[in-house]
Amino acid sequence: MEFNPGLLLADLREQSPLIHNITNFVVMNFTANALLASGASPVMAHAAEEVEDMVSIAGALVVNIGTLSPQWVSSMKLAMKKAADLNKPIILDPVGAGATPYRNTVLTELLDIASPAIIRGNASEILALAGAAVQTKGVDSTTSSIDSLEAAKALSERYGSVVSVSGATDVIVSGDKVAYVDNGVPLMTRITGMGCSASAIAGAFAASNNDYFLSAIAAAATMGVSGEIAFQNAQLPGSFQIAFLDALAEITPEKLNDTAKIRL
C-alpha cells in the first residue's frame, strides 16, 4: 500500500477546516496555535448553550477530558451526539484514563453516546480504556505504545474507531490494519499539550479527508516530523515549544513525504 501523507497535508491547508475543541484549560492556547500552524482553524467552545451550533459549522469535533467538570461533561455529551447526528468526525482524547473512577465513568458515558472516528491517547490510556489493569502516572504513560497493540485492536473492533497510540513509535490501528510511525524526538514528552495537540491535528486531517486511518497516520507523521525539525534549532523545552510551532507552519508536503517514517 502506497501512502502520500503530503497530499493529505496539502488538502488540509487548502480546505482550512474549522475544528471545534472541547479541551482542557492547560493546553488551549498551544492547541489553538498548533491548529493554526497546521493550516486549520480552531475554535474552543465549551458552553452547553452553543456547542451544538458550533458542531454544526465545524469540520470535526475534538473532545479532550484533561480537566473535567460536570458542566463540561454535559457539553461534551451534547456535542458528541450532535456530531454523530450530522456524521461529523469525533476525535476522543482520553486524557488520564484509568487514573480515577470519575474519569473512567465519564469515558464510558461518552462512548455510549457516539463512537469516535479516532481515539488518540498514550499507551496507558488506551490500555485503561480497553479495560486492562494498568498503572498510570497522572496523565503520563507508564507503558510502551507497542505493548498496547492488542488493546488498540480491541478498542477499534469494539467501537469501529481508528485507534492512534502515541509513543516512541506511534501505533495506528483500524480493524486488522496497523501502521507504525517512527518520527519524533524524546523532548516532545516534556512539553505540556503535545499529545493534546496531536489529537487536534488528527481532527484537522479527519475533517479534510474521510479516510480516518490515513488521516490518523498523516497526523502522527506531521507531528513527529515537525518535532524533528524543531529539535534541530532548539534542545530545551521552552524554546522547543516555539520552534515546534514554527516547524509545523513551515513543513511542506514534500518535506513530510521525504521525512515521514511510516510502516504499513
Rank of each mutant, 00 (worst) to 15 (best):
D140A: 13
A132Y: 13
A133S: 15
G131F: 08
V134S: 07
G138Q: 06
A117K: 07
I126E: 06
S144G: 10
I118A: 00
I119F: 01
D140G: 12
A128M: 10
K137Y: 10
K137F: 09
G131H: 11
L149A: 05
T136H: 00
A117D: 02
A152G: 15
E125T: 08
T143I: 12
K137A: 15
A152C: 11
L129F: 02
Q135G: 12
D147V: 05
A151L: 09
N122E: 02
S144K: 13
D140H: 09
E125V: 02
S144T: 15
S145R: 02
L129N: 01
T136P: 03
A128P: 05
A133E: 14
T136A: 07
A130D: 12
T143A: 14
A151E: 13
G138E: 08
N122A: 03
I126Y: 03
I119Y: 00
D140E: 13
T143S: 14
V139N: 05
I126T: 04
R120P: 02
S148R: 01
N122M: 05
S145D: 04
G131V: 10
E125W: 01
I119G: 03
A123P: 05
R120G: 02
A132H: 13
P116V: 00
A117F: 00
P116G: 00
I126H: 03
I146N: 11
I118R: 00
A117I: 01
I118S: 00
I126W: 04
A132T: 10
V134D: 03
D147F: 03
G131T: 10
D147W: 03
L127A: 14
S148W: 01
S145E: 10
R120D: 05
N122W: 03
S124Q: 10
L127H: 01
A132K: 12
L127S: 09
K153D: 06
I119V: 08
A128F: 08
A152K: 02
Q135C: 11
A123Y: 01
E150Q: 13
A152E: 07
A123V: 04
N122S: 06
T136F: 00
P116W: 04
A128N: 06
R120T: 06
A152R: 03
